[in-house]
């Protein structure tokens, strides 16, 4: 698997607060569980890299970004609802890895065309 196919997540938190810790905990659990291999997670402290936050258009803290595959998706909040987080990130296909999901979609698309 080459890099673009991997899921790149970036989590912005604001300093070492209980909420930050809780959020990091939640996102780690997501990555380890459902997406174990296909996921790169980066955790950014807003205070440390405010310039990066501006580039990514982060307003709320904490915010989780799915940088790839595009388009960028973002989730604000401490990610308490894991199911909703996965749905937003487009990763809710019951543990299916995203490249497969994309292939499936493509196949469906072409197949539909054939039928028509």
């Amino acid at each position: 698997m080459n890099a673009p196919d991997r899921i790149r997540l970036r989590l912005y938190v604001a300093g070492p607060s209980p909420r930050s810790a809780r959020t990091i905990d939640h996102v780690r659990r997501l990555c380890e569980g459902a997406l174990a291999e296909a996921c790169d997670l980066e955790i950014v402290d807003l205070y440390q890299q405010p310039g990066l936050a501006a580039e990514d258009g982060v307003v709320a803290a904490p915010t989780l970004l799915r940088l790839s595959p595009l388009p960028v998706r973002r989730v604000a909040g401490d990610l308490t609802d894991a199911r909703r987080v996965l749905a937003t990130l487009g990763l809710d296909a019951g543990g299916a890895s995203p490249p497969q999901a994309a292939q499936q979609q493509q196949q469906q698309g072409t197949g539909g065309g054939d039928v028509a």
């Binding site: 604001a14 205070y47 936050a53 803290a61 915010t63 973002r74 989730v75 909040g77």
Partner: peptide
């Protein structure tokens, strides 16, 4: 449409920026 909210958050990002 681009921002989903789950749980607790604040606008610290804005303040920091």
């Amino acid at each position: 449409s681009e921002i989903e909210e789950t749980g607790d958050y604040d606008l610290e990002g804005l303040f920091i920026r």
